[in-house]
Amino acid sequence: MQDNALELFEVFIRSKRGLDHKHVGSLHSEDHEQALEYARDVYTRRSEGVSIWVVRSADICASQEDDAEDFFDPNDDKPYRHATYYTLPDAVNNM
């Protein structure tokens, strides 16, 4: 089989001004410019967004889920980083 698949791009959409761009999915495209247009056509047909970002999937560097325990572990033994760790009397508990 001839490999003529185009490169994979990840699509991020800002649904409303003021909100973060959120990952919505991926698509194949020959370059960034086309990816933007394809993303518009396939991901925002019902005005789901006001802004689109496309990123080559190969350019995304991700942490490994399998390693998550080791990777994030150092933070689990610091309960004092959470506001709820400090039990304050009711009278002043709204801070």
């Binding site: 004092y80 980083r81 506001a83 760790y85 400090y86 304050l88 002043v92």
Partner: peptide, 13 residues
Amino acid sequence: ESFHQRQGYDIML
């Protein structure tokens, strides 16, 4: 930030 203020008040208490 909430943790910051609470740990401070906790010291005062």
